[in-house]
């Protein structure tokens, strides 16, 4: 492990979300790669816990927004209200002005509201009444989403999905993990009392170190081969250049978490499904997941 704070952080998170070290690493890699994270799973799988614990451990200002179908953009971004004393409009910032925003059940909100959030994510700033307000730095959005099959959901359009660096799903815990979970007592208070492992400044430094992870030509060619393969699938629209960049960035973060200063194909493979899944638009019944695995299986990293 490259950094003591990081290992401590991982350990701590693993205690919050039992038996899911892989997902925790992915989430952390996403943050190190300055990406936004989408967690898709059934309710009650620990999405909220994970994100809350992440914010708490990283010492970031945190706000949870529970999305509902009647939510309006202003409910997230904030409104200008007329201040009678000053005789002018004063901007009241919405919940989004936090370093880490948990957009819970984002697919419950109407598309309008969704896109307001996603625009803010993309530009790291918002415009209300013609005035631009910068969002804090670092700025992360962890959105959770219920599977689309569930009733009462608005699926995120593909173009918006592209803004999330990764999509992960947590999945049911293993027997042992669930048993362990039942044995420990965890209340929301325990989450709030989690010790802070990293400062925001340290996080920025770690992000910079991630950028310095080197990628050899052979590896870049491997990435390109994967991307190229995704584009030539008959039943999918391929990955965009933005996805290519995200893949490299995420793989670097993963390598950094592995304590390496260079990339190997395994790093790419580790993050590929999470990065590519939600961007592969399939025209057939085949799920993105199966597709991304098919692509991975079809490309030989030895080149």
């Amino acid at each position: 492990m490259a950094h003591s704070g990081l290992s401590q952080l991982l350990q701590q998170l693993e205690q919050v979300l039992l038996g899911k070290p892989w997902q925790i690493r992915l989430a952390l890699a996403c943050i190190l790669a300055r990406g936004h994270l989408l967690i898709e799973d059934l309710p009650g799988m620990g999405k909220t816990s994970l994100s809350h614990a992440l914010a708490q451990s990283l010492g970031l200002s945190y706000q949870r927004i529970q999305f509902t179908s009647d939510m309006l953009p202003a409910d997230i971004l904030g409104v200008s209200i007329f201040d009678k004393h000053q005789a002018q409009f004063v901007f009241h910032p919405g919940p989004i002005f936090k370093q880490m925003v948990l957009a819970d059940e984002i697919n419950r909100a109407s598309p309008k509201t969704q896109s307001a959030l996603l625009e803010a994510m993309a530009e790291q700033q918002i415009s209300v009444d013609g005035i631009t307000h910068r969002l804090p730095n670092p700025f992360f959005v962890i959105a959770t989403q219920n599977p689309t099959e569930q009733s009462g959901t608005f699926p995120l359009p593909e173009s918006q999905l592209d803004r999330f660096m990764m999509r992960i799903s947590i999945g049911y815990p293993s027997h042992d993990a669930e048993l362990a979970m039942l044995k420990t007592v965890q209340t929301p208070q325990t989450l709030d009392n989690l010790p802070q492992c990293l400062t925001p400044l340290a996080l920025t430094q770690l992000q910079e170190q991630c950028d310095k992870v080197t990628a050899s030509d052979a590896l870049l060619n491997y990435i390109l081969a994967l991307i190229h393969d995704s584009r030539s699938q008959t039943d999918a629209i391929g990955l965009s250049p933005r996805a290519t960049k995200a893949l490299l960035q995420a793989a670097k973060a993963w390598a950094f978490l592995e304590g390496r200063h260079y990339l190997v194909p395994e790093d790419v493979q580790a993050v590929f499904c999470s990065v590519a899944e939600h961007r592969l638009r399939t025209s057939s019944q085949l799920q993105g997941e199966a597709l991304s695995e098919r692509i991975l299986a079809g490309v030989n990293p030895i080149m």
Binding site: P265, Q269, A297, G298, N300
Partner: peptide, 25 residues
Amino acid sequence: SAKYQRICQRLSKFGIARPAHLGPN
């Protein structure tokens, strides 16, 4: 890489086949 592949090919004769997508590590 060719040399690496050759070794892998020889290994496959002993029943240890490298799945095509598996990274070296």
